[in-house]
Amino acid sequence: MRVVDLDMERPADWVVRMLPAAALRGAGMAGEAARLVRRPPVTGCALAGRGGLERHRKVLANTIEAVAANARMCGPGMEAWRPSWQIEAQVYAEIGSACMDLAFQVEHMLLAGGRDDGQLAIRLVHMAFALGGFRGAGSVAAEVRRSYHELFDALVLEGRGRLMSA
């Protein structure tokens, strides 16, 4: 089964707020995750208007700095992050292609509108994933997959998408 005819407002909110929050929870950074979740949801007006996601962008950028500082405190070797393509490949494999494909689709939609919020959110997921590997294998992937399934449950139940056999 797959969900089609998506209303992109909820997936955009998921990428900007809930996806990085889930990754942060999995990496043991519940405070930073809660800060993202407390932000107002992304709305259609915010997606359509100029600067509508600016408040989210600032929080994402500050959270990236917090994750980087946390990584430096974790000890030797964390300063030397693995190459981004290695982390991206591992994230894609462990979290799952369907989940990350949606994240990249929303990232590209936002980029087409002149917004880099999706890029920041995915970068944050990659950083949390790298940090989470030192905290417990699979914890970030499990949290992100759970968040992804909650998104699709909500989309189908709210009528913002429909199920179609694969």
Rank of each mutant, 00 (worst) to 15 (best):
M1F: 06
V3C: 15
D5E: 15
L6P: 09
L6R: 13
D7R: 10
M8S: 08
E9Y: 03
R10Y: 07
D13S: 14
W14Q: 06
W14C: 12
V16A: 08
L19T: 00
L19F: 13
L19E: 01
P20M: 12
P20G: 09
A27P: 09
G31I: 06
G31D: 14
A33M: 01
A33F: 03
L36E: 02
R38C: 13
V42C: 10
V42F: 04
T43Q: 08
C45H: 12
A46Q: 13
A48K: 10
G51E: 12
G51S: 10
G52P: 09
G52I: 01
L53H: 04
H56L: 13
R57L: 05
R57K: 06
R57Y: 03
K58Y: 15
V59W: 03
T63I: 14
A69F: 07
N70R: 13
A71M: 15
A71P: 10
C74P: 02
G77P: 06
M78E: 14
A80P: 00
W81M: 11
R82S: 14
Q86H: 11
Q90R: 13
Y92C: 12
E94W: 06
G96I: 09
S97F: 10
A98R: 08
M100N: 02
L102W: 01
L102R: 03
A103F: 04
M109Q: 09
A112D: 12
G113C: 11
G114N: 07
R115Y: 05
D117R: 03
L120E: 11
A121P: 02
I122C: 02
I122Q: 00
R123A: 12
V125K: 01
V125W: 00
A130P: 01
G133Q: 02
G133M: 02
G136C: 10
A137Q: 09
A137G: 07
V140E: 00
A142P: 00
E143L: 13
V144Q: 00
R145M: 12
S147D: 04
Y148L: 04
E150W: 06
F152I: 05
L155W: 03
E158I: 01
E158Y: 04
G159Q: 07
R162L: 07
L163Q: 05
S165R: 01
